[in-house]
Simulated assay, not measured.
Amino acid sequence: MLKRLEETLLALLLGGMVSLAFLNVLTRYLFRYPLAFTEELLVNGFVWATLLGIAVGLREGAEGAHIRFVALTEFLPTPWRRGFVALGFLVFAVLFLVLAFLAWRQAQDDLALGSVSPSLGIPNAFYTLPTPFLAAWVAVRALEGVWRSLRGGEA
């Protein structure tokens, strides 16, 4: 169910971004008036889509679906290989937990300062609040990868 939810959210987000970018191109060339707010929405949507895409890639397969450097681990005995793959997932999880913490601090600052976006005039927290949760979700998916690697099988 979570797999389906991730994919649906990602598809809706990407579809909305493509539609918005296309609308901006149309207005720029037909009316010679670009929609300034689209850049604001697209940049932040790109951040969310990137984080969701990372989470989706981490959950696929025994070692994840992301490109990785395997020249050294391919020659290791299976238990050692599993350990190094698990270590890679663990480092990934720590990195994204740090990102989640820093993004949470950014969202808190945006809320405390009451800063607003330049084009739409909405609170910046609208853009920054999803980021720590998405980064934490990436960390959860990475920890699942640690578990899969140590177990030696598919999730």
Rank of each mutant, 00 (worst) to 15 (best):
W147P: 02
R105F: 11
Q108L: 10
G53T: 09
L134E: 06
L30Y: 15
E7Q: 13
L41A: 12
V98C: 06
F133K: 03
R105A: 10
A155C: 04
A11V: 04
R141L: 04
R68Y: 08
S117G: 00
N124V: 00
A62G: 04
T128D: 02
A93C: 04
A11R: 11
L134A: 01
F46S: 10
A142I: 01
F92V: 00
G16R: 09
L2I: 09
V43D: 10
F22M: 13
L30G: 13
W147C: 00
H66D: 06
T27K: 12
V146G: 04
L9V: 07
L5V: 12
L42G: 05
W48F: 12
L12I: 04
P123M: 02
L102P: 04
L51W: 12
P34V: 06
E154P: 02
L90A: 15
P79M: 01
V18G: 08
V43N: 14
L41R: 10
I67C: 07
G45I: 03
L134C: 03
L58Y: 07
T128P: 05
F46A: 07
D109F: 12
F84M: 07
G114N: 03
L2K: 10
A112Y: 09
W137R: 06
A139S: 13
L150D: 04
G83N: 05
V18H: 11
R68T: 04
L26G: 09
V47M: 12
L99C: 08
W48S: 07
A55Y: 13
R148K: 15
R141P: 03
A155I: 03
L20A: 10
L87A: 14
L10V: 01
I67T: 14
V18C: 08
L111K: 03
A135Y: 11
I67P: 10
R151I: 00
F126Q: 01
